[in-house]
Design a binder for these strands. Sequence first.
DNA 1: GCCGTTTTCGGCCCGACTGTTTTCAGTCG
Length: 577
Amino acid sequence: MARPNEEVEALLREYADLIAITGGDAFKQRAYERAARAIGGHPEDISRLEPADLREIPGVGKSIADKVDEYLHTGHVSVIDERRATIPPGVRELMSIPTLGPKKAMSLYEDRGIASVDDLVAAIRRDELQGLKGFGPKTQENILHGVELARQAGGRILLDAASSLAEEAVGELAGAEGCERVAFAGSLRRMKETIGDIDILAAATDPDPVMDAFTALPLVAEVVMHGSKKTTVRTTAGFQLDLRVLPPDSWGAGLQYFTGSQAHNIRTREIALRKGLKLSEYGLFDAKTGKKRAARTEEDVYHRLGLPWIPPTLREDRGEVAAAQRDELPGLVTLEDIRGDLHTHTDLTDGLASLAQMVETAAARGYSYYAVTDHAPELRMQQMTEEKMLAQREEVRTLDGKHRKLRLLHGTELNIDPDGNVDWPGEFLAGFDLCVASIHSHFGLDRAAQTRRLIRACENPHVNVIGHPTTRKIGSRAGIDADLDEVFAACARTGTALEVNGHPNRLDLRDEHILLARRHGVKFAIDSDAHTTGELGHIRYGVGTAQRGWLTADEVINTWPLGRLRRFFRAPGRPGR
DNA sequence: GCCGTTTTCGGCCCGACTGTTTTCAGTCG
């Protein structure tokens, strides 16, 4: 579904880069970058929008809407093709090397004919950059180092890995001399699905001991940049951490600034400007007198801008600032709202912990209900049988009541076959408290077939939740191609919940799909899909993703009391249990 | 190229660090 949006985003980004490389208007370049981001993050499939609707997307005006329309109809944009023809594609590739931007890339091409990363490495090795302005020995060394690092991959990491790195660093820095406060900010605080680098913010009057503690962290392999306000290090795995140290009375403004996103910050700074104020990481100041108006807490900064505090997971410039101005921010679902987990596994199938161990951990998490949903027989390697399932149900009923506040639900995770059928006949399915149904095979069916398949699963009266609906795996498998609008409409019509799977390599549905689905009035289940006791904690990434999709607790069925949840599972059109 | 509670023209976020062109441009976030 997101394909056309992603294609257009990439195209507009390329055009923005080409404008920068060829020395075009910097504001025009930024306008294209902004429109690219907005289209990439737009919840609706843009190929279905009329040009007039395209212009409703922030940052998209007549000129860009026309280009997008041209692309959607012809597969090309003539002015972009023309601009492309003037610059070899490898020149843009040069900009992927850290410290090389458009100016230096163009200078390499114009003065030395360098048009690829390989050309550049060869030129440096042959010492052919002599006399080229801006390319002294240190710069050349940095370029070679940057190319080497890029070739070793590194790249973005998943939320759980980023969280543990950040928590380790924050824990260590908290003990540094003079460190009054320390926290992570950036995309990790916004719970973005992958993290490119970790931003840590500390408050101290004297920054030096904190900086020194940072560069001395055991995880540090290399100090990239070391100043008195900002330091950057790289881990042995090639991952980057930034530390900013600010005066303690700038804490709130710093946290606001370094949490981003960049697009959100631009929005808030524009509001500041209109109010005759200037916003930086040091505080909110009167533009004329320079007098400080707010800085101590994030709440102070937002309030002084005339806004309520905006949760970090919303700060993506997807309309949250306008919603805040109208005082219409959603009351987001929180981890504390979650009363139970509806998708988990045990060692009866591919989990690693016993039912008793999983239940014990669920009870310790304070849940009021907990569903075990082991795999059904069509996932052949799990060798599931009716007998095994019924034996597990006995065990569940026995364990139920061992924990005073925790009710146990016996469920299963069914497999949706290519035709949309699931394991087991209806009479057997009727014995479960709930059924999650998921796609585990035939990922390559065409769009029509996948759409039909998912809708049929929704229409099965025994199916309560569609598990990891797109089946994507971050960084390794694209989601299936289906008409998600049709699928979401079917979920709403049949009272089937969509899962927000919290496993860090799934996060499925993802934020943008959640935004789209909730327009249809769908309900959601935030699940861990845990296969170990520790993975029950993954539900927090599901909550983060749900927040990024603007979900309120009422839209999430596993925030409801058990009675309401059971009524939802038996809603009209569904068989009695 | 976009946009509007100062504006349909004239703005467009702001600061840190590095390397090098010894006073600042380029890059980054």
